[in-house]
Design a protein around this nucleic acid. Sequence first.
DNA 1: ATAATAACGGATATAACATATCCGTTATAA
DNA 2: TTATAACGGATATGTTATATCCGTTATTAT
Lengths: 162, 162
Amino acid sequence: MKLNEGIEWAVHCCSILASLPPGMALPARKLAEFFDLPEHYLAKHMQSLSQQGLVSSSKGPGGGYRLGRPATEIALLDIVLAIDGPAPHFRCTEIRRKGPSGVDDKCYGKPCGIARAMWRAETAWRDELGKVSLEEIRHTGLEETPHEQLEKSLAWFGDALK
Amino acid sequence: MKLNEGIEWAVHCCSILASLPPGMALPARKLAEFFDLPEHYLAKHMQSLSQQGLVSSSKGPGGGYRLGRPATEIALLDIVLAIDGPAPHFRCTEIRRKGPSGVDDKCYGKPCGIARAMWRAETAWRDELGKVSLEEIRHTGLEETPHEQLEKSLAWFGDALK
DNA sequence: ATAATAACGGATATAACATATCCGTTATAA
DNA sequence: TTATAACGGATATGTTATATCCGTTATTAT
């Protein structure tokens, strides 16, 4: 199993948006260029973020994306779910009911113990993602970005936002 | 993202094997029949379990699969990894290094904070799966299986093991 | 010995999903 | 009026999961 690559893209893009001067917006085109990503496909992911309210969008020249709420109030989990969708990764198909020994559906109460255990693990995963704020991501990212890259980025965005 | 359906199959099958009288083995054919699963495909998954030592196999008539070690010493995590493979779900493609502002690879020390956060969540997931033993799965399963199904199952396996 | 069973590995076919592009539409700013 | 940019829908492509089939080897029962 592999997580959607768009998750990595979306988190990085949100982190950039979190560092944007208030009032400014970045179009998907610029974000794609900055990370060397396929423009149209990234645009699709940005639309998913927009639908969830994580970013707000404005059309037309000078338009683009900005954060939909403060970076302290966006969890890594929010971004992951926006891209990956809300469905649990483990899907119980109730094979315990199938086959020659299965009995009527109404004999089974709660979901089977195997599914419950798998879902508990998924809850632990989500909880961990829920603890991380976009602000933390942004801060750590800034701290750990090489100086040279930081300068190049500032210059590039300076030009881009002209 | 969706987890391999074979995980559900494998855990259920292991749970059956854990209830098998010592010395007995069940062929993939019988397991597939019992859960109404595609025989050859299930056989592939059983081979994965075998490669990891979770089950041991014996060829020829009367042969089949049995647990490779006591159910108390097999974690749900072991089964999940045997089927799903050891690779992490989140794969960092290092897009931070790409694009016009990226700098030389050796300027980047540890993996980026986003990947680290994603991997922390995955560790939480694995930890939770590591806490659950096959013996617990088996016990819970037995307790929650409808009486009628239990009787049918015993009869069916009785015939099957003749 | 011979026949039947069953795991095993490799090759292949099919279905589902992720990845990626394209197009027409709408909104908006210059 | 023109250019920009988000948006939604349709489509193409690639990759992975699902599923089957085959020949081989080991083993048991006849």
